[in-house]
């Protein structure tokens, strides 16, 4: 599936909820279901600096496809992180770099990506794109 197809699927999922509680129950559920990252990747270099909860992001590349794994101490952040990796992991580096993540706004979670939230999510998204750029420039060099 392309990045936009996955985004559209998430938007459709969220249309089922008519109040905030349903929405958050769903996000919390995503957070609970996201497999815990193995300790070997929970390194200081993989920490996305956020004020309140730690977010770890591990990225690797295989034949032009970039994969992400992520984790967080806080369950709601973990749920949001799960959505971001679902959309961007397993995609071409170039597509990740160029991705327009319109689903965040559409499902009413834009506030969570605001810098003021200081939960590291905005920094995480930036880091994901930076990885993608780094991996794609490596390709160019080869």
């Amino acid at each position: 599936m392309t990045i936009n197809e996955i985004q559209d699927e998430i938007i459709e999922d969220f249309e089922l909820f008519d109040d905030w509680e349903g929405k958050y129950e769903y996000i919390i559920d995503l957070g609970k279901k996201l497999p815990e990252m193995s300790d070997e990747y929970k390194t200081d270099e993989n920490i996305i600096k956020g004020c309140q909860s730690v977010v770890w992001l591990h990225a690797y590349e295989k034949e032009g496809i970039v994969y992400f794994e992520a984790d967080s101490q806080a369950i709601i952040v973990k749920g949001l992180v799960s959505m971001l990796t679902k959309v961007l992991s397993g995609q071409k580096a170039e597509d990740i770099w160029n991705a327009d993540l319109y689903f965040i706004d559409k499902v009413g979670l834009a506030g969570h990506l605001a810098q003021t939230r200081s939960n590291g999510l905005a920094s995480m998204l930036k880091q994901m794109k930076t990885y993608a750029l780094a991996f794609s420039s490596k390709e160019f060099k080869v």
Binding site: Y24, I28, Q52, S53, Q73, A74, I75, I76, V77, N119
Partner: peptide
């Protein structure tokens, strides 16, 4: 078992 940030968000 609940992270303070989750409490704040809810």
């Amino acid at each position: 078992g609940i992270h303070p940030q989750d409490i704040g968000v809810i």
